[in-house]
Amino acid sequence: MKNFDWITPATAKEAVEACTAGRTFMGGGTDLVTLMKAGLVEPAGLVSLSRVTGLDAIAEDGEGLMLGARVTLAALAENTAVARRAPAVADSARNTATPLVRNRATVGGNLCQRPRCWYFRHPDYKCSKKGGDTCYAIEGENKYHAIFENTTCNIVHPSNLGPAFMAHDAELVILGPKGERKLSIHEFWVRPEEDMKTEIALDAGELITRVDLKPMPARTGSAFEEVNEKQSFDWGLVAAAVRLTLDGDKAADVRIILGAVAPVPLRHAEAEKALTGRVPDEKAALAAAEKAVEGATPLRDNHYKIAMLKACVKNAILMAAARARKAGG
């Protein structure tokens, strides 16, 4: 690890001003520090968000939920308003890593974390993401890699809040050198074919300050389901976030987002369509889940993800539907 400056601004504006060339923001640091230790990033300075005021609040009003970027996953998991108004987000936060990590890791950091692909993380592999000319996962050890949109690069996006935020149409509030802007979470992800060097649409020096979630309509439920090899601290093998509204007893306004199976979280219109207008029971859920895994392009060692993802989508649909039935309105 190289030496670096340590800056602790008091406001978001100061933080953005301080984050000049070569410097980077640090929230919980749970990912950034591992990247620095591996020599994958060598920032000249860290702009710590630890003392920035106003970034760690969870606020609730008629407009919805506002989550500060420095809200920890532990705080998110424990918050009753989040559990009530965005159950998929609460599911997702609860399932992440360990209590130790959840106490440090932040909402903003979860969205900005880099992929866990072991070729990307290994210092002796110059893969295409690091300026090389190949994706080692294609021929290599690819049990944990992508099964969709994986011709160029086989990472899976590691953010588990990402799919849950997509199910709730989150809007990101971003502060940068040119001022504040808002960006839909659906526009946030960058595919390797667009830009190999990044996974997200933040410009240099831009900082996520808040994530806004609109209120859910009546009779709506959401859920996030993730499968892990072990239950204490593990990355998802597959994940699904689902939201639906009941129109009578039929599913409407369906969102189905797949996680841990592609370089970005995938919203799946075909699967959503398959469920829309149907009673969201086991049979309909399975039909939608089958749609969701159509066209998968697994690698040598990750065919298992197809069956697993199918079950995962089905279970997330059933959980979201059960919650919708219980919800008021």
């Binding site: 866990r116 072991w118 070729y119 290994h122 002796d124 592999y125 080692y136 290599g140 050890e141």
Partner: peptide, 16 residues
């Protein structure tokens, strides 16, 4: 887990 291409251990950590 050993990589068949360059021969490194891919999970020489407590994460993977």
């Amino acid at each position: 887990v050993m990589d068949r291409q360059l021969g490194h251990q891919m999970n020489a950590n407590f994460e993977m």
